[in-house]
Design a binder for these strands. Structure first.
Lengths: 223, 223
DNA sequence: AGTCTAAGCGGAACTATCTCCGTTTAGATT
DNA sequence: AATCTAAACGGAGATAGTTCCGCTTAGACT
């Protein structure tokens, strides 16, 4: 889902070993057709209206084809999120500061979380859908790994003595789709308010002169 | 699911308006039988083995009965978690410090999160199951509301100027079942290590002399 | 004891996900 | 062009969640 080359020709490099290296032309055609139809379904009726059977019918292919292309419901959702994820990664990896390189670490983390919130504001339902139908897949996805590595690096730069990986996971949990939707729909928070809440959290990390961490228990891995 | 009286007689006060106030004896009998069977199914084969059809068959009732008692899969999961939740609430509301009243706020928060982690260690799969099959229900459950109110109160006591509700939600997100299972199974963190990570987060809250919050954007509710 | 009725029960039926496998085809090789 | 085969396709069927509705029953009231 993440590792693809040859975007212009429409050919896709699949990362899984033992799988074909390039898609056949009919497969590529179906992938694009299915994604296009899925987009319109979601746009008109929300994620609830997106069913595998219905998608296959509307796209004029068999259900087997849908499953072959996207593995399952969660895979379809991740595929739909992929476009936005790509450009998001471009921005925080190579774009202009404070989101991209150049700004101080804490400022970049702040910008990242703000941008994340803005993305959620349009795609939270799809995110939640994906997470709920494949809870483990979220953490294994290239998107999550990239976000985590990005935050962990910045956290380490900001405060060398903290357990950056744990905190990165923690920050990403705070901007999870489920909580976001609850805050937005039920608590009626604006994205501005959420960003303020996140800022507050970050200010604590920033202001704490001594996190008093000493890595208790993080040296060895137990089971 | 939360508001019940008359525990000894087995009668249950249902909180939903327009519903019967007390269960009929056969209904109570079936509820207990179903919960007992469900427990053994989960104990032997994990949550994956828990199906509504199978449960009904093993308990010797019709599927309709299962749905009448528990509404849906998520409701069944929440019912299974209810016993533990009850005693957990007793402990942090009325038990001995630092979990119960008497200790300083930050110490109580710390104890709460540690206890939460210990609970997850035995019940994370059931929690995840419940959350994924009814993502909105998590936040509306009495359990979540209670945890949130508890943390928010303690946070307010510790630092009057922070947005306690937002931070309470944030802390609960960090101990979400999905992340916990990932950390435990994939990253192979021990519960001790997770507690250390949480301590670090709390120490930041505690150490930050000025969270620099000024409640930006939290005054009015937008949509 | 008889009656009445709201609540509970059971399981057929409907829906949607996902798997399986026989058939078809893209495209490489000759 | 003919051949060959890995990949893709389609849709029937297995499985599980959920709803619906006609029948049954607990328990309240006479």
């Amino acid at each position: 889902m993440e590792i693809r080359n040859d975007q212009l020709s429409g050919r896709v490099m699949l990362p899984v070993l033992g799988q074909p290296v390039v898609e056949r032309s009919d497969a590529t055609r179906n992938r694009h057709a299915l994604l296009a139809v899925a987009q319109t379904i979601v746009a008109s009726g929300g994620v609830a209206a997106l069913s595998m059977d219905g998608l296959a019918a509307q796209a004029g292919v068999g259900v087997g084809t849908v499953y072959r292309r996207f593995k399952d419901r969660a895979g379809l959702a991740y595929a739909l999120l992929d476009h936005g994820e790509r450009s998001f990664q471009q921005e925080f990896l190579f774009g202009s500061p404070p989101l991209g390189p150049g700004a101080p670490p804490i400022a970049r983390i702040r910008a990242f979380l703000h941008a994340y919130i803005d993305r959620l504001d349009t795609q939270a339902e799809l995110h939640l859908f994906a997470e709920c139908h494949a809870p483990k897949a979220r953490f294994h996805s290239g998107a999550y790994q990239t976000h985590r590595a990005h935050l962990a690096l910045l956290l380490t730069q900001a405060r060398p003595n903290i357990h950056a990986n744990y905190l990165a996971d923690a920050l990403l949990a705070v901007v999870g789709a489920g909580l976001f939707l609850h805050q937005r729909r039920e608590l009626r928070l604006s994205t501005t308010q959420m960003k303020a809440g996140l800022d507050q959290l970050l200010n604590c990390l920033d202001a704490a002169t001594d996190p008093n961490v000493v890595n208790v228990g993080f040296e060895n891995t137990s089971r």
